[in-house]
Nucleic acid binder design. Structure first.
Lengths: 238, 238
DNA sequence: GATCACAAAATTGCTAACAACTTTGTTGAC
DNA sequence: GTCAACAAAGTTGTTAGCAATTTTGTGATC
């Protein structure tokens, strides 16, 4: 019956605020979202793993309510599932969902390839004509898939940069963050690397020639083939 | 690079929602997000208008922290802008942004039209062969654009339903919620209604014939034309 | 009359305690 | 030995109050 507990701390813990000696200021909501997005995309936290509010709040040294807001964003992006009173877990990637993602990725990357071809000066792509030539052959021969993928991602980000369409960029980003892991498993499938390489040479050639529509069609075919390979070997991949 | 890591034990237990009693349980975060999304899409709240946390908390009878979480979601969707210590305002729709949205909408609706053609039995589209015939001519003649748009939206939602691709559906949804207002302004532009109608007759015919690829191409052309009309009359629309 | 300074009011952001729920560990009956 | 009831611990969800910041209103000065 001790009534309401009133905290009477007239002694304020004043001015702990800015900078202080302490270096890194507390990360904002977008900061934390970005960090967790990367962790999930890289599978530093496995699908199905639980994310604790308190745990994360301590790690980032922010109030728990901020983690809560972060969870709201992550949930709306479909990266985590929240169950009332039980917390948040990293979403699992269903097989069907992967195919849906690939269908969408197909048309969006096709669009970006076309736009990039229209927007960029043709010389932009010389770099990739070069890279997709001998060097990539070497990577395939040496089975150096990491270097292989690095080139791909460089190409991809250059395309998105020149497409100059933030809406498409954003949507593709939300696809990549879910399929990045899959991509690495597809490249190592038998024959896929060489097949994908020759498809990309065709795409780059069309872009260099300024033929956006052909480039778009070729890019779509490329992703269609990747999807087919995935379908064929699905039991080994997922 | 490890294999699967975590096994999640889901013991699904029947959950009794305790809202009950007369129905007006406190709305959840997704509920409120949905309501505000609609308000913004219908321009019940104007672009640039301020959204107050306390105000909304009182209206929905929920804690202010929940509104805060809602704002996090809305911000990540690009529907509102938040300025630290100053609150949230409804995002304004830049002209450039509208064109970006239309480029993306073009390829996504094209995809859905093709998928729907492949997935649905051909008779599905008879309804629209009929509707896009005499009835729509009447609407155009009578300048009953509301009825006109209702048919369009019915067609659109049927397509998305049969495309059976939740990823595309979700993305298109996030486009519609931003462009719905624009659409109503395009239809009333001189000649656009009849033009769009004849384009749609071609699309429906291809779908009825089971020719997905042609339908996709026609749908893309249709939206391309809509975009061109918009560009031509942009000063009257925005 | 216009401008700057300053204080009051309102709003956002944060903290910590509290309540509800879920999981886990233990005990006891069959 | 198995299962059910129950208590303890831990986690999530909620609430009220406080701190910090911006906005608004007022008055003095030039």
């Amino acid at each position: 019956m001790s009534g309401r507990v009133v905290t009477l701390k007239t002694k304020t813990k004043a001015r702990v605020r800015k900078g202080g000696g302490g270096g890194a200021g507390a990360p904002s909501v977008p900061d934390i979202v970005q960090i967790l997005r990367e962790r999930i995309a890289r599978q530093d936290v496995a699908p199905g793993a639980k994310l604790g509010e308190q745990e994360l709040a301590e790690e980032f040294a922010v109030p728990r309510t901020r983690i809560r807001e972060v969870f709201g964003v992550l949930e709306s992006r479909g990266l985590i599932d929240r169950i009332p009173n039980r917390g948040a877990v990293v979403s699992r990637l269903e097989l069907d969902h992967v195919f849906h993602l690939y269908d969408v990725r197909q048309v969006l990357e096709g669009l970006c390839v076309r736009l990039a071809t229209e927007n960029a000066p043709p010389e932009t792509w010389d770099e990739f004509v070069e890279l997709f030539g001998a060097p990539m052959d070497e990577f395939v021969k040496a089975r150096d898939f990491d270097a292989f993928i690095v080139v791909y991602e460089r190409f991809r980000s250059r395309i998105i940069e020149w497409a100059r369409n933030p809406v498409a960029a954003r949507m593709l980003d939300s696809i990549y963050e879910k399929t990045n892991v899959i991509i690495r498993r597809i490249v190592i499938l038998p024959g896929r690397a060489v097949e994908g390489l020759s498809e990309h040479r065709a795409v780059v050639a069309a872009m260099r020639a300024g033929d956006g529509e052909t480039a778009e069609r070729l890019k779509r075919t490329n992703l269609q083939n990747a999807k087919e390979t995935l379908r064929r070997f699905q039991k080994y991949v997922l």
